[in-house]
């Protein structure tokens, strides 16, 4: 299975995402924002970073990149698409996910290992998690406050489109503690925390067992593989 990772000017975590894909057992394919060609990949990751220096709005200029019309077409035809952090911002800017992300309510960049509740295990990116399970992966962002009009929030909640919620103190003012959402079809998921930074023992968050041994992020990548091979 081939999973594309799109690099935009200012992407930071594209190589980490590619590494996570490889560790999960798939083949990462490097894609470039300026080339409107998905190279026949089976799924896509829009990685974190600061595309275009967060100019205009986070993810706004990247959402108008040449490759994004292909991404939109693929997403609408059911291809799995995961947006991480800046990638999540791009998906909202591109209209593939609802809501928007605004500056953290406390005004500061936050970087910490974040405990999350898995709210939806029926998406292609979360089907290998346990319903109601808890995971810890890094959160590192300045504009992670998920927001949407109240009726949209009610609908997201009512239809089970909230995929992840922050546990403990809300880190950024996200409404209803929302850390990640999905589209109705469950193939497009966006989240602010970074699963790709918690995929390999020795380089992940601390756990009760050992320092930096956390690999909870791997589940996102094994989930999509499971969806793609149909087991």
């Amino acid at each position: 299975m081939r999973i594309g990772v799109i690099t935009f000017p200012g992407s930071l975590d594209d190589r980490d995402a590619a590494r996570a894909i490889r560790l999960a057992g798939a083949e990462p394919v490097a894609l470039w924002h300026g080339t409107p060609d998905l190279a026949g990949v089976n799924a896509l990751v829009l990685p974190g970073g600061f595309s275009y220096g967060d100019y205009l709005r986070c993810g706004a200029i990247a959402a108008l990149s040449p490759i994004m019309s292909e991404v939109k077409r693929a997403a609408k035809s059911g291809m799995p698409v995961l947006g991480i952090c800046n990638g999540f911002q791009m998906l909202t800017e591109a209209g593939l996910l609802e809501g928007g992300l605004i500056r953290n309510d406390h005004g500061a960049f936050i970087c910490r290992d974040q405990e999350l509740q898995i709210e939806n295990t029926s998406t292609v990116w979360t089907n290998s998690f346990t319903p109601g399970g808890r995971i810890v992966i890094p959160l590192k962002s300045a504009e992670g406050g998920f927001t949407a009009p109240k009726d949209t929030l009610d609908r997201l909640e009512g239809e089970g489109h909230i995929v992840l919620r922050y546990l403990g103190a809300n880190p950024n003012g996200a409404q209803r503690d929302i850390a990640g959402i999905t589209n109705a079809a469950g193939n497009v998921v966006g989240l602010m925390p970074h699963p790709e930074h918690a995929v390999e023992p020795g380089f992940g968050p601390d756990t009760d067992a050992a320092m930096r041994s956390g690999t909870d992020g791997l589940g996102f990548f094994t989930s999509v593989l499971r969806s793609l091979v149909g087991v």
Binding site: L56, A60, T92, E93, G99, G100, I102, T147
Partner: peptide
């Protein structure tokens, strides 16, 4: 459509 995002602005 471009200079603003109606969800937040």
């Amino acid at each position: 459509n471009i200079l603003s995002n109606s969800v937040i602005e």
